[in-house]
């Protein structure tokens, strides 16, 4: 499973997105908005899950807002942190 697929699986499982499949989440589309109904609580949940699964910490909104935009930005954030 690629990093992006793993991220999608975590989002589906941990945020309880019933009836959503991996292929329903496009790499470049916004995660937060009407399509999946995610909100600020989900953002905090995602911060927790990133730390738990990848050991990567989002410290504040300045880091979090661009990182949590899409699967592409999340994957890039994780790879950058893990490489540092």
């Amino acid at each position: 499973m690629t990093l992006k697929e793993e991220l999608k699986q975590i989002i589906i499982t941990e945020l309880n997105l019933e009836d959503i499949l991996l292929e329903d989440i496009k790499d470049d589309e916004p995660l937060f908005g009407d399509k999946f109904g995610l909100d600020s609580i989900d953002a905090i949940e995602l911060v927790f899950q990133l730390k738990k699964h990848f050991g990567v910490e989002i410290r504040d909104m300045k880091e979090g807002r661009p990182a949590l935009e899409s699967i592409n930005t999340l994957a890039a954030f994780i790879e950058a942190r893990q490489a540092a």
Binding site: I44, E45, F48, Q49, K51, K52
Partner: peptide, 12 residues
């Protein structure tokens, strides 16, 4: 877990 805080959903 190696995380210093818990899941907010599970907490709530």
């Amino acid at each position: 877990d190696s995380v210093s805080f818990g899941s907010p959903t599970r907490f709530s």
